[in-house]
Design a protein around this nucleic acid. Structure first.
Lengths: 344, 344
DNA sequence: CGACGTGCCGCAATCGATTGTAGCGGCGAC
DNA sequence: GTCGCCGCTACAATCGATTGCGGCACGTCG
């Protein structure tokens, strides 16, 4: 069992002291060791197939080359691309990623973050932050290198990478308006989530700007970002305003709920009702009809978050306050088959 | 910055030696410390809000309470449920999960595993193993606690948790046969993947057993588990055997390719062509028509893999050879709208 | 010829927690 | 009365790598 090759073994094999071997192995400090010695050490390490012991290194250097990432639900297709982007960026820089799944449970989030910090992660990426979150406060207080992704905290200055929801909804409304629609509904997401609120608010603003029919009855909030609530909400809209010719949904699943509602009321998408989604989830291009939706660059979001975190970790932690910028990634519109000019 | 509270601080606060504090804090060894001392130490730890230093502990105990998990592609909807299952199971036991994404790149896989081992993970779960894999050999050789998931290695004895592909295909063929189909095609997955091969082989066996028309022309291999290759393969089948009334696809994406192919040849699913998929990916129930498919319990796969790994890690590594069992989870058939009796 | 600098390397401390062993006081048994 | 044991705690080694500091040898310059 004790076949582990340590630095001392390498040093002995190379006929030098362990400290010298350490310096020879580390590109940073390699300069202070003579070239021939470096060569001898490298050779010895290769012969013994030496593998550095990251834990021991971490204890001494206080840097573990690991970062923690917490998401609410990995099975929500939103998050895998983000994780992947983060992983690609940080993995390239030599970091490994510890991931956790909270199931939207604040308690699990706390224990998870505690565990990650106990493991001495060098940084943290949270995709779980609520708008006001004591945990985030605390982490900032403790000067943990922290980046929020997809959501952001409103009170505390933190680096965050999010999609520009305002721009996205604006794109959707502009598209619908340009097709000639005037009576346009909005199936809103739950008001407890920042995404739900921001998109609803922006919808109203954009509706005004595009001179659509502005009527509180044309907005219906779905209780959750799922198909079934979306169907219900859309039914309510259709029944209140039978003259409605288009719906901007706050999310793809809600949009698919609108498909169901339209079918239920005997209306065809897009001839009788245009529908737009949000997120461009996988496979919505294979739906019947293929969904016109807002494409958010989630993968890039992960990349950018990774870059930000690298930046933060590089910075000396007890130097001037960090800039804490919120980066908004601009989404794009993907027009497919679920939108068309109104029939009349 | 050096506000970290160490065990010695707690010990000093409680008026005992660090070793005593350590024993008092650890439930395992708490028995050897007097009750009053335990209380004093716990109290002191609470007052100072002491957080154990997992890295230091790991160095001493050789157990980091972390496990590595490597998947080929997190964006493939197959894998998130598995990761989640693993995370739930091992997280409950106090472990954290280091995840890596290989993009199906063998080289990345190697460096990733090397990195994980350098971080002294206590165990490893691989969802990336090819049928014959030197890496797996090497890991077994080095007595790493290892569980394969979703795929398995054929030559080396390793614990593995997989779906029972034979049972799944059998279910699909039985369903199709019971509807009365006799001329049934198979869009096979790539032969380089064990899943592709096994499913194709089983399809033939099941076809014989159910007295279907057995004709090599009724099997067409798709180059990759994607929609487009599926479409091509299905077109080939339709053109070779216009009398074909049903297709068993080796995968949901291939099945969606079959939808496209059928549409292209002016045939309606399911009236003119029944189609079954495999995996029950998210949202295939929302397709038009909703896909009849084989549901594989991926989340449970993760759970079981986690349990197996816990078992392996508990075991003393240099004791008798491990059992190395392959656990097959039985899939189920979900009948939706893409299958129907043949028209004639 | 001696002082000093420079290039390389070894020594030992250190990171924070765990653990084998030794020590210490008190009690019971012979 | 003494020995041994028991319950509890302290000491110190240890895990493996990193790093400040000091020292040695050699070369250069005054």
């Amino acid at each position: 069992m004790n076949d582990r090759v340590t630095l001392r073994d390498v040093a002995r094999e190379a006929g030098v002291h362990a400290s010298t071997a350490s310096r020879a192995l580390n590109p940073e400090t390699r300069g202070v060791v003579s070239e021939t010695t470096v060569h001898r050490v490298l050779e010895a390490a290769r012969r013994l197939s030496y593998r550095p012991h990251a834990v021991a290194r971490g204890l001494r250097t206080n840097r573990t080359m690991t970062v923690g990432m917490v998401v609410p639900d990995l099975e929500n297709p939103l998050f895998p691309p983000i994780v992947r982007g983060v992983e690609a960026e940080l993995g390239g820089a030599g970091y490994s990623i510890l991931v956790g799944n909270t199931d939207n449970d604040a308690e699990r989030l706390r224990t998870m973050v505690a565990s990650l910090l106990a493991h001495q992660v060098d940084g943290l990426i949270l995709a779980t932050a609520a708008a006001h979150d004591d945990l985030v406060d605390e982490l900032v207080e403790r000067r943990v290198a922290l980046v929020l992704v997809n959501r952001f905290a409103e009170d505390v200055p933190t680096s965050a990478v999010v999609g520009d929801d305002r721009a996205g909804i604006e794109l959707a409304v502009a598209h619908i308006a340009s097709l000639g629609h005037r009576v346009v509904g909005h199936v809103a997401g739950p008001g407890v989530l920042s995404t739900g609120r921001v998109r609803a608010k922006t919808f109203l603003e954009a509706a005004i700007r595009h001179r659509l029919d502005v009527d509180p009855g044309l907005v219906e909030e779905a209780g959750w970002f799922q198909v079934e609530p979306g169907r219900h909400a859309c039914l309510a809209l259709l029944d209140r305003r039978p003259d409605m010719t288009a719906v901007v949904a706050a999310n793809d699943l809600l949009a698919l709920g609108c498909y169901a509602a339209a079918a239920q009321r005997g209306r065809h998408v897009p001839q009788d009702l245009s529908v737009t989604g949000y997120n461009d989830m996988p496979f919505v291009d294979l739906m019947e009809p293929a969904l016109t939706t807002i494409c958010v660059p989630y993968r890039e979001m992960g990349h950018v978050a990774g870059v930000s975190l690298l930046e933060l970790m590089r910075r000396n932690p007890d130097l001037p306050s960090p800039p804490a910028e919120t980066i908004r990634l601009t989404p794009s519109l993907t027009v497919r088959a679920s939108t068309a000019p109104p029939r009349s």
